[in-house]
């Protein structure tokens, strides 16, 4: 199988799998039990998720029409304190970061991602998450989800809407190319 740069790679998922333990002990944290405030404030149902030892890689299982393993990664950008969000699907031991799953559970997947963001920010309260989708359509989708849960997240997050020349507090009805999410400190 070819990767994005065209090189043929030998796939070894054992290293990846070793990051996650299924014994419910060291290194495996059931995020749903840790952040009561998040649970109280979020309306939409979500999937339970797991986090690796670094607290940067999260996994959950989407169970819509199909069963799909999802991964959420927070990786630092070259700006201190800002992490980009990567959302991908595991499929046949590979990761696809742009797939349209069409699993008919989009709301639940996005709700899970929001809770994962909150979980990450509660461990890294000074960090901000930079979110940018693969297309304008996907960014609009993110906006719709943000708007839908706005009354719930506004106590938790400060969300900035970003376009090439616009950096402002998120406003309903406006399309942005990306979002910057931080924990509300007040």
């Amino acid at each position: 199988m070819k990767c994005w740069c065209g090189k043929v790679l030998i796939i070894d998922t054992r290293r990846l799998e070793s990051k996650f333990r299924d014994d419910g002990k060291d290194g495996l944290i059931e995020g749903v039990n840790l952040k009561d405030r998040i649970e109280r404030n979020m309306n939409a149902s979500s999937y339970p998720f797991r986090v690796d030892d670094s607290c940067h890689i999260f996994r959950f299982t989407s169970t819509g029409m199909k069963t799909i393993e999802k991964v959420v990664v927070f990786d630092p950008l070259p700006i201190p304190g800002i992490y980009m969000l990567v959302l991908g699907d595991f499929d046949e031991d590979e990761i696809d970061v742009g797939v349209k799953s069409n699993n008919r559970d989009l709301e639940m997947v996005l709700s899970t991602v929001v809770k994962i963001i909150a979980f990450f920010l509660s461990d890294y309260p000074d960090a901000s998450i930079f979110v940018e989708g693969s297309s304008a359509a996907r960014n609009r989708l993110y906006r719709i989800m943000i708007e839908k849960e706005r009354k719930n997240w506004r106590e938790l997050f400060v969300i900035k809407g970003i376009d090439e020349d616009t950096f402002e507090v998120f406003q309903s009805g406006k399309n942005y190319s990306s979002y910057l999410i931080s924990l509300c400190k007040t």
């Binding site: 990767c3 994005w4 790679l9 890689i57 991964v71 990786d75 980009m84 991908g88 970061v97």
Partner: peptide, 21 residues
């Protein structure tokens, strides 16, 4: 990186970071 498949999380995140930058 979108529409591509990666053999590791590291490869996927590196590609997305390069794409964003």
């Amino acid at each position: 990186p979108f529409g591509q498949r990666f053999s590791s999380i590291e490869a996927a995140t590196n590609a997305k970071r390069d794409w964003l930058l």
